[in-house]
Amino acid sequence: MSADKENVHNRIAVLRAERGVSRRDLATALGVHYQTVGYLERGEYSPSLHLALRIAEFFEVPVEVVFSLRPFPRLGSAP
């Protein structure tokens, strides 16, 4: 199994866009600085398990819908 340089991939930006939530609004709901949301979205920071679970809970989806050890397929790409 390739660790892909230990990166944790996420769909935070996609989920935010789908729901019309700003970085600042998400950060406020999570109790983090809005720049932290940007770092997470760009993959510059991996969340703690607690933060990852809180993000998934905020979007009301399972944590594996938000985070993955493998890159998510691009939207509109064939299976």
Rank of each mutant, 00 (worst) to 15 (best):
V21T: 01
V37G: 02
R19I: 05
N10K: 05
F59S: 01
E41Y: 04
G76N: 07
R70W: 13
R23Y: 06
I12C: 01
V8P: 07
E64W: 15
E57Q: 11
L40P: 03
E44R: 15
R24N: 06
V21W: 02
E57R: 12
R16S: 00
S77G: 10
T28A: 12
S46W: 06
A27R: 00
I55S: 02
L26W: 01
N7H: 15
R42Y: 11
I55V: 09
R16D: 01
L40D: 03
P73W: 13
V8G: 07
S2P: 15
S22A: 04
A29I: 03
V65D: 12
P62M: 07
G20Q: 04
D25Y: 04
L53N: 11
N7K: 15
H33R: 05
G43D: 02
S48A: 04
V14R: 11
E18T: 07
V63A: 14
R42L: 13
G31Y: 02
G76Q: 05
E60D: 14
H33G: 03
S22W: 04
P47Q: 09
R74I: 10
A78E: 15
S46C: 08
P62T: 07
Y34S: 09
Y34D: 10
S22C: 04
V65Y: 12
A52Q: 09
S22F: 03
G31K: 03
R16E: 00
L51K: 03
G76K: 06
